[in-house]
């Protein structure tokens, strides 16, 4: 059965696009048919993060308005052949997407894919509401930082009231993906802890992605951490989050603090 997931956050720059690409690629690598859909009309970036920016001919709006067929617009990944991208339009504005058009395209995608992962734009306006509207499940991407947590709380409220599921009295599953987490700073009490964020937002935890150099390197190369062979902690954390999303029971690994030379030498004062 096909699942439609929205990756959302309210706040910009917290890692929605990176997370969409990384989790989508990880699911596709396990043989699942995956389509990642960019809802950020006018500011598309999912194509860039996936290294497909020169292959976009038709986009989501062309399909939603009936100017192109879905099969013409879908871009198959060159590395993982079960991974597909439906790019956003870079030249149109957000009003070009209608609710009916989005519903029809999502319906068509459901027929050909096991997973449809919608990368929401930032904000709580039309684009973000359309991205969540037809979802079965949500991934709320949050940084351990006050403005991000506040915006996530707002988004959770919208998921519970403005999605098709919520309006018809059904439940929409929401899971937290905590990104850019720095265990050392959290241990020193400089950054909200995982428990703090979970306690405040009170939704289940999908995964914790540690702050890591490999994420920037991956977007530089246009190859998500889950498919570029990265053995780093972010790649591992995204792979595990994808397995949890698919229903496997995988314990959440709390990222370790990096042991630097000085750190080892002196040890840490107090926990």
């Amino acid at each position: 059965m096909s699942k439609v997931i929205v990756v959302t956050s309210g706040k910009g720059g917290v890692g929605k696009t990176t997370s969409t690409a990384s989790i989508g690629a990880a699911l596709a690598q396990s043989g699942q048919r995956v389509c990642v859909v960019d809802f950020d009309v006018g500011l598309r970036n999912l194509d860039l993060v996936l290294g497909a920016e020169r292959r976009v001919v038709y986009d989501f709006i062309n399909v939603a308005q009936g100017d192109a067929k879905l099969t013409q617009a879908l871009i198959r990944d060159k590395r993982v052949d079960t991974l597909h991208l439906l790019a956003a339009s870079q030249t149109r504005d957000k009003d070009a997407l209608s609710s009916e058009g989005v519903e029809r395209v999502i319906g068509e995608l459901r027929m050909s894919f096991d997973w449809v992962i919608c990368d929401s734009p930032a904000g709580i306006e039309r684009g973000a509401l359309l991205a969540m509207r037809f979802a079965d499940q949500a991934i709320v991407v949050t940084n351990p930082e006050i403005s991000s947590v506040r915006d996530s709380d707002r988004i959770i409220g919208l998921l519970d009231s403005r999605t098709r599921r919520a309006e018809s009295g059904e439940r929409i599953d929401k899971q937290l993906l905590l990104t850019r987490f720095d265990p050392a700073r959290s241990n020193r009490g400089e950054m909200l802890s995982i428990a703090d964020v979970l306690d405040i937002l009170s939704i289940p935890l999908l995964g914790v992605i540690p702050e890591s150099e490999e994420v920037l390197r991956a977007s530089n190369l246009g190859a998500p951490v889950t498919i570029n062979g990265s053995a780093g902690p972010a790649g591992r954390a995204y792979r595990e989050a994808a397995r949890r999303l698919a229903g496997e029971t995988v314990p959440v690994a709390i990222p370790d603090e990096k042991k630097t030379f000085l750190n080892r030498l002196f040890g840490r004062r107090a926990a």
């Binding site: 930082e145 506040r150 959290s186 020193r188 009490g189 909200l192």
Partner: peptide, 12 residues
């Protein structure tokens, strides 16, 4: 001991 407890309280 860092500012995280303040952040947590303000958010709550």
């Amino acid at each position: 001991r860092g500012a995280a407890p303040v952040a947590r309280e303000r958010l709550q």
